[in-house]
Design a protein around this nucleic acid. Structure first.
Lengths: 228, 228
DNA sequence: GATAAACTTGCTTGTCACTAACAAGTTTAT
DNA sequence: ATAAACTTGTTAGTGACAAGCAAGTTTATC
């Protein structure tokens, strides 16, 4: 039954098939993230998802094929969210400035959406499993992230602020590994000082990338700069 | 029936209760590690452990209380193994030398016992889960590891090779995070160059800790040193 | 000091509530 | 009416626990 005012379609009465699908899938993904954060991967059962999202226990399988399929979709959604945040934060920067801004954005993102980060890392942990169905997705995501970082380094090398001897791929590995490691420690230890670790990481990263000529100063000056 | 030669007790015929227990627990732990590496945490069922270890499916619960209890024991065993390796590698070193030696030992250990590292990380991943029963164990282990690193830094500060302004705790977080992050990337991406990442990490760590006076050189000299 | 009963511990099997997946249905949009 | 979204019935497999059996170990008795 076609409604006269398409703008008010989502008044719970009659929805387009596409709308129903979108609403159901989004609801289940959101519910899964919530459950992952509260009762973990074990407690995130199909029944629990269905109950909390207002559907039956069978709908997850219908839409995502399997529980692993739903988790794949969760990762996809989280990744998209982070990528959007990063793009607006970067704003066409490259080189050292891009890396610094990215680390800042990362910290802000973690503090803003801790439940996303937690869910992401829980699923990444599950991906280490040899029988994991979404390990390739995780590997690919990391590969793409590293490639961005390597591109920033190459940009800095083009402009001369980063020495040409530095290997962009190696920096990308260190950069990305550092972020993963900091997050891992924070997720396990509730009293871990995330902000301090991030700012320290940023300072170290910038120092490693800066050409040695910028470090030929008197120790006093250097230290004051470090504290800033 | 008491045997005349206690030294030949373990000839598969008649075992002391203690011997039986030790053999059974060690067998199940070893089997669990093997299964974690091949079929993952999902495939590591009580039935599979019992089958592979030559016991029944009920013995795990009997000895370790639960599946989580077994995994706790697995982590304990892996940790003990790594700690022993580290101690022999360190040999009373402190300061930058200790950190360098520890990173080398870490790489050697990962290459020597990849199945241990993989199992450890799979279980750590599971520990991120809010319902995890052994998250405190993981957090405590990380805390102890960080304390060691911080002690090395303080040692280096005492001898003067590390600047007093450097925060040992922050360094420990970066150090440990870096190792976790590198391992995580390697575990997910089969073609990840682990050795290259480790040597790069070591070089960066040493550079960060070295007093700036050692960096006031001509760029040429610095670069040659970097390549070594 | 040998020997058998009393006891303890290692280990297995039966059972139960719960889970994911799939197939066969019912309801809703087109 | 027909195809999609969604629900319900069913099944094989899971971890935990309890009851029971089979070894090993201690103690009492001769």
């Amino acid at each position: 039954m076609p409604q006269p005012f398409p703008a008010t379609r989502n008044t719970d009465q009659s929805l387009t098939q596409a709308e129903r699908t979108a609403r159901a899938e989004a609801g289940m993904i959101e519910t899964a993230i919530e459950l992952l954060n509260t009762v973990g991967i074990q407690g995130t059962t199909l029944v629990a998802i269905g109950d909390k999202a207002g559907y039956s226990r069978g709908l997850v399988s219908h839409h995502f094929g399997s529980k692993a399929g739903l988790f794949r979709a969760v990762l996809k959604r989280i990744t998209a969210n982070w990528t959007a945040d990063l793009h607006t934060a970067l704003d066409d920067r490259t080189g050292i400035a891009a890396i610094g801004a990215a680390i800042d954005a990362h910290l802000a993102h973690v503090l803003r959406h801790p439940e996303y980060i937690r869910a992401q890392n829980i699923l990444w942990g599950a991906a280490l499993d040899p029988s994991s169905e979404f390990k390739p997705n995780v590997a690919e995501f990391m590969q793409i992230q590293r490639e961005s970082v390597a591109a920033w380094v190459r940009g800095g090398q083009k402009s001369g602020e980063i020495l040409p001897e530095i290997n962009p791929q190696r920096i990308a590995e260190q950069y990305y590994g550092g972020l993963i490691g900091i997050n891992s420690q924070w997720l396990v230890s509730p009293d871990f000082d995330l902000a301090a670790a991030y700012t320290d990481f940023k300072r170290n990263m910038v120092r490693l990338l800066s050409a040695p000529t910028t470090q030929i100063r008197k120790p006093d000056t250097l230290n004051r700069e470090e504290r800033q």
